[in-house]
Amino acid sequence: MLQVISLLLENKPGALMRVTGLLSQRGYNIESLTVARTLDPALSRMTISVEVDSSQRQQVIKQMNKLINVLQATDLTDAPAVVRELVLLRVKTPQESRTAVLKEAEIFGGRVVDSSTDGFAIEATGDAEKLGEFIDVMGSYGEIEVTRSGALAIALEAKKLRLQPPVPTGNGAGVEEKVI
């Protein structure tokens, strides 16, 4: 099944590779992955949609939480969350259907970001299903080219972030768990 995972991770070289490596070494195919800086530039927020055997969902989250660079991995598949995606689409339109295309775009909440005699570039956001319909409709007017961002998700309930405090070097002692 398609699992939606939200990750908060350190913005460090290799951090992305560790996350994707965990999935690829298990033979899972990543449907989509988005990543960008958070308010704190030292951190990134990542949303991954990945086809995972349903019995392995928890294991995947646990393994991600074990990664040193990952501060928090959350399974949003069944959790209260908003999942959105951005589509950028260019459609070639003959003169006579330009108005119709604009109307349709409006129905889907799309916004024209560029217009030329050839046609339009349109952006739209929404859930994957709605965007699929939008793309189909646009395709019926003429040749299209599409870029999708992949799912972006945010949980609707804040989850406690457990961060570890600094520890002294050279003693290899255990850390105490602390909630910040």
């Binding site: 520890v167 070097t169 850390v175």
Partner: peptide, 15 residues
């Protein structure tokens, strides 16, 4: 010499 390290995401569960 470095006397402390900080790995905020490295969770060690002990108790």
């Amino acid at each position: 010499p470095v006397t402390t390290i900080h790995l905020p995401g490295y969770k060690v569960f002990t108790e």
